[in-house]
């Protein structure tokens, strides 16, 4: 079976840990326990009939992206760039971080996850901004770690991109 390392990257509190928890354990908690350092989980996904074992590294989110610890990124075949849909700023941070990640480990497949899609009333992010990014070739998903929408799809899509021959 193919193994792939992926990272969850994004500002703090955007729901990286929650997304993994939903994806791997089908669980969600409203309680916020910030991640310190790194935590690793794994999950096997089926992509177009092939099985891929994802080693999912959950990195500590840091709003000060200057401090991004690139050493954890090394060896990643892809990453999930997570932003909190209810906080416009987290998208800006995500874009900033994406540039630093590319600089550190080169161009690898990634997806943008616009999380907390269930909180429709508090949604801040303009669709126009998202469309801009799509135009730049970014692929984005609206996800909800609470209700599960788009979570599985995001991980499967990332896996598909990673195993596609370049």
């Amino acid at each position: 079976m193919i193994q792939k390392k992926i990272c969850m990257i994004g500002a703090s509190g955007v729901g990286k840990t929650s997304l993994i928890s939903k994806f791997v354990h089908s669980m969600f908690s409203d309680k916020y326990l910030t991640t310190v350092g790194v935590k690793i989980d794994k999950k096997t996904v089926a992509v177009d009939g092939a099985e891929v074992m994802l080693m999912i590294w959950d990195l500590e989110g840091d709003d000060d992206y200057q401090r991004l610890q690139t050493s954890y990124l090394r060896g990643s075949s892809g990453y999930l760039l997570v932003a909190d849909g209810t906080r416009q700023i987290t998208l800006d941070q995500a874009i900033e971080i994406q540039g630093r990640v590319t600089a550190a480990i080169g161009p690898v497949p990634f997806l943008l996850a616009l999380n907390k899609a269930d909180l429709v009333s508090q949604w801040e992010i303009d669709q126009s901004r998202v469309d801009d990014l799509t135009a730049r070739g970014w692929k984005s998903f609206k996800t909800s770690a609470k209700e599960g929408a788009g979570v599985e799809e995001a991980f499967v899509e990332l896996s598909r991109q990673m195993i596609q021959p370049p």
Binding site: K5, G37, V38, D41, M53, M55, Q69, S71, Y72
Partner: peptide, 16 residues
């Protein structure tokens, strides 16, 4: 697999 990951993370952490 998890142990391998964490061992690497530990080393990375120490190095960093």
């Amino acid at each position: 697999d998890m142990v391998a990951g964490m061992l690497s993370a530990i080393q990375d952490f120490a190095r960093d």
